Simulated scan of single mutants.
Amino acid sequence: MEGLSSINTLHALSALLSPPDEDEEEDCAFVTSNAKLGPGHIGPAKSAESKPAASAYTKNYSKAIWSEEEVAEGAHFDDIADPRPQPEYDIILKQSVGTEDIFLGMSRKDPSSMCCENMVVKIKLPGTKVAEVILDVKETFLDLRTPKYKLGLHLPHPVHSQEGNAQFIVEKEELEVTLPMNRLLDCINLA
């Protein structure tokens, strides 16, 4: 068994399994004999032309977090050919508080968004009349269309779409949409 562990035996075994390339010998001339051989030297030499076969499960190595196919909700509202700009808007979370909440701290309400009851979306629509506004509210998406503007807005929290109300303030040329929030633990948080 002692004969298999010598360097000369390993060279002979390597030469037997794969004849050394001339370029490889020149590149490794300055390296010691122990460092010349490795697991990659056993077997036939691999050519640069051979590539692994492409399969259906190959991963796309882009930096995208998700693909466009995965984002389906609200995608039918997007119209790339529509040149109308998106209006300015603000989303404000609103909660009803009384003196017992502010001064005495008797309820379990706090300033976090978990204790908010309503979501108010303020949309600035300069040069727009009330009759021109088309508003469609879903549980997680708000769609607003006017002759001058379009807005497709994904809401940060689910809402009761049938229980909300909208008010157009003519002086500010602003539409205020108030939507009650629909969350799983509202009966606990708002008790």
Rank of each mutant, 00 (worst) to 15 (best):
P126H: 01
E117Q: 12
L142C: 04
S96M: 13
E73K: 09
F30V: 15
G40Y: 12
V121Q: 01
E88Y: 07
I7H: 00
S55C: 11
K150S: 03
E69C: 00
D90F: 15
T140H: 02
P111T: 10
T178A: 09
L184P: 05
P52E: 10
D27G: 04
V133R: 06
D110Q: 06
A35P: 05
I134C: 15
G164A: 07
A12S: 13
S62N: 08
D101Q: 07
Q86P: 02
F141S: 11
D90R: 15
S55V: 09
T32Q: 13
T32R: 13
S33D: 15
H41D: 14
V130I: 07
M1Q: 13
K122L: 10
L153I: 02
G164F: 09
P52S: 11
S14L: 04
S50W: 15
L135T: 04
Y149A: 00
L16F: 12
E26K: 14
K63E: 07
E173C: 01
T146M: 00
I134V: 15
K59C: 11
T140C: 07
E132L: 01
K94M: 12
S6F: 04
V137F: 01
S14H: 10
E132V: 01
Y57C: 14
D90H: 14
N118F: 15
C187K: 13
Y149W: 02
Y57Q: 13
P147E: 01
S67W: 05
P44I: 03
L190Y: 08
E88S: 11
D90L: 13
E176C: 15
P83Y: 03
E69T: 04
S50P: 01
T99V: 14
C115V: 04
K129R: 06
P39H: 05
C116I: 00
A191S: 15
L175I: 05
A166D: 08
H41F: 04
V177D: 05
M1G: 15
A45W: 13
D186G: 12
H157G: 03
M119A: 00
V71M: 03
I65L: 10
C116P: 03
H11C: 14
Q95T: 09
E163G: 11
E25G: 08
W66H: 12
A29C: 11
I169T: 12
I92H: 06
L17I: 05
P87V: 00
F77N: 09
R108Y: 13
P19D: 09
A56T: 14
T99W: 14
R84W: 00
E117R: 06
D143A: 13
N165D: 15
I188Y: 14
T128L: 02
P83I: 01
S47C: 09
D23Q: 10
V133G: 01
V133M: 08
A29H: 11
P111S: 10
E70C: 04
F103R: 11
S47M: 06
P85G: 02
E117S: 09
N189C: 12
T140A: 03
S14C: 06
F141R: 12
N118T: 15
F168K: 01
G3H: 13
N60G: 07
A81C: 05
D27P: 07
K94S: 09
L16I: 04
L142A: 05
S47Q: 04
